[in-house]
Nucleic acid binder design. Sequence first.
DNA 1: ACAACTATTCACGTATTATTGAAATATCCA
DNA 2: TGGATATTTCAATAATACGTGAATAGTTGT
Lengths: 118, 118
Amino acid sequence: MKIESAADTLSALAHGGRLAIFRLLVKAGPAGLAAGDIARKLDTQPNTMSAQLLVLSNAGLIRARRDGRSIIYTADFPRMTSLLKFLTEDCCNGRPEICAPLSAAAAQNCTPKKGNCR
Amino acid sequence: MKIESAADTLSALAHGGRLAIFRLLVKAGPAGLAAGDIARKLDTQPNTMSAQLLVLSNAGLIRARRDGRSIIYTADFPRMTSLLKFLTEDCCNGRPEICAPLSAAAAQNCTPKKGNCR
DNA sequence: ACAACTATTCACGTATTATTGAAATATCCA
DNA sequence: TGGATATTTCAATAATACGTGAATAGTTGT
């Protein structure tokens, strides 16, 4: 990932409301959530929500698909992975202090050993 | 880390120039770099640089100390670690697909096994 | 004290972003 | 077709962010 692309992606997440949306969609997984559901859960007006979803969508962090009258949004996992890789590689290239503890935490959270990853 | 704090920190990094500054400081390590050196390396005017450094500083991502007439900036590693932890824990709580590959990459980059981390 | 150097602060114009009411589009069902 | 539902688009406003010239503050050496 290029630095300007990373900055754009970070911009999309640099907003409390949008970060909350993204978090919700990550938890929802591939099934995703309808725009209206997200708006209700986060207590946001439909048009405001639509604008926020557009920003995340333009950044490539989420994807949209129509299902009947609803539009279902899902988190784009590879995009998030590549952002995190950019940030961690950035760090590790210079100093390991930043991502060494992260690596440990990630390993603990993400390895399928203990079954804490669905 | 709280979500609003994470959004603020992401805001500071959501800017090509500031992301470049932070990257430079990470690579510089604890020795840090003087404001003027950063400005020259990134071809930015001193007052613009000062404003960008202030944003990063307010976000807690960098620290300043005076050394003679220069002001030396250093990356705040723990702050970056906690941001990355927020992002990855966020992801892992729901789905491991995002940070599983990250975890592997981080482990490869950061473990002192191969000596590729100074 | 003075001049040179380093960096910040201030004030200002411009540009971008965020939110909202109102209107428009798309879908479903009767 | 017509009405209800779900979401987006448009237009306008308010708020925030960005970069810059000019002025200011701290430090060093003479």
